[in-house]
Amino acid sequence: MNTFKRKLLNWSSFPSLVLIIALSVINSFLIPHFFSMSYISSFLTSYTPLIIVAMAQTFVLLGRGIDLSVGGIISLVNVIVVTLFGQGWSFPSAIAVGILAGIIIGVLNGIVIGFLRVTPLLATLATTSVAAGAALWIMPFPGGSVPIEYVMWYQSNVIGFLPTPLLFIIISILIWFIWKATPAGLQLYSMGRDIQKTYVSGVPVVWIQFYTYVSSGFISAIAAIALTGNTGAGDPLVGNTYTLFAVAAAVIGSVSLMGGSGDIFGAIFGAVFLGLAFSLIYAIQIPSTYQDLTSGVIVLLGIIGASLMKKRKRTFSFKPSHIKPIGGNQP
């Protein structure tokens, strides 16, 4: 029991778990029926895309990369699925093509960053433009629809009591466990900490990088499918905000932006925390024109808070990871 307690306290995702519990207590006072099954199920319906896209971002962040194109991918997959269905395709095949599109953007990211060695930040900024432009090209204005059965299924329960969105989350978590089951899982962490040394020890770092971006593209596409079940329509700009939210959720969940530390559960907790914070904004009825500002400030404070906590921890550790040069403190 004692070792379990110590393990829990040292778990990188533990602080975000505490944040969730704290915010849940606050929410339970302000939101009626907060702990009811129907509220939890509607919460998952709205915030599953965010939870999943945070996981997608985590793969890339662990390898010391970043994927700014997740928002663009979500928009692209959303409009492809809706447009193809509108043109008479069967819904499953429309979904298949949508997911394929997400994977293709991921492959493009992986090639440009892994094999052609362009900085992740700029490469994914460019592919964001590619994905978002393609989305805008396919569907210049919001519209279209998906089968009502799909929306009903997404917003209901499977096996009686489990909300369907959980299914999407579980699929994404499975991809994480596939990584962990292969050497690639450990190699990913190692690469995030020190790519040079990892390369020298014979790890195919280029391929690992490639797979992280492909995973990110694939999981972002799953997020888009979930989102489509929630909105039931197509919108070429629907993914825009998700890029920031995904990075913020991962950071709040103690996934290091410097690579090599954190895990997917931290990202899930971070996303749930943001979801709770956003539902609080709606619950206390802040005027709609102020909601963007409030959610922006919450996200930013979350990032700053998480970074401050990490900095504090570093100061108290015995190993000085950051040695100041001689004379550095002189006026």
């Binding site: 440009v112 362009v118 900085t119 433009s129 590619v130 994905a131 978002a132 432009g133 070429p236």
Partner: peptide, 21 residues
């Protein structure tokens, strides 16, 4: 939409020419 897409592709191209690590 195509303009944004092409801007992205051109930026990719520029990056490949100018700033590979």
């Amino acid at each position: 939409g195509v303009r944004v897409l092409l801007q992205g592709l051109i930026l990719l191209l520029i990056l490949l020419i100018y700033s590979r690590e």
